[in-house]
């Protein structure tokens, strides 16, 4: 199962702080997962925004990062500072 965490405005866009799901068939990378989630949650491309960073198991990754199906994935809009 993958655990997906949404922060800041993305939490409001998706209406959830986190979700746990089995990696859908055909979803093999961060890029394909973002596209799938965008359509699933009607995000109007919010996850594709280049300012949104992605962390896998709390490490920053690029869109081409392959997924095995047991990761924690965080989607991070620009930080606001303290």
């Amino acid at each position: 199962m993958i655990k997906i965490l949404y922060f800041g405005r993305l939490r409001e866009n998706t209406g959830r702080r986190e979700e746990t799901l089995a990696l859908p068939e055909g979803i093999t990378s961060i890029l394909t997962l973002k596209l799938w989630l965008d359509s699933e949650h009607y995000l109007d491309g919010a996850l594709q925004d280049p300012s949104v960073k992605t962390m896998v198991n709390q490490t920053l990754v690029h869109n081409d990062m392959a997924l095995s199906g047991d990761e924690e994935i965080g989607f991070l809009p620009p930080v606001g500072g303290g």
Binding site: G8, P77, V79, G81, G82
Partner: peptide
């Protein structure tokens, strides 16, 4: 802490709420 720390900040004013950046 003001620029790089991993925090998301939302403020509420009389005009509503908004997420703010450095």
């Amino acid at each position: 802490l003001k620029t790089e720390a991993v925090f998301w900040k939302r403020q509420k004013t009389a005009n509503g709420t908004r997420w703010i950046e450095p």
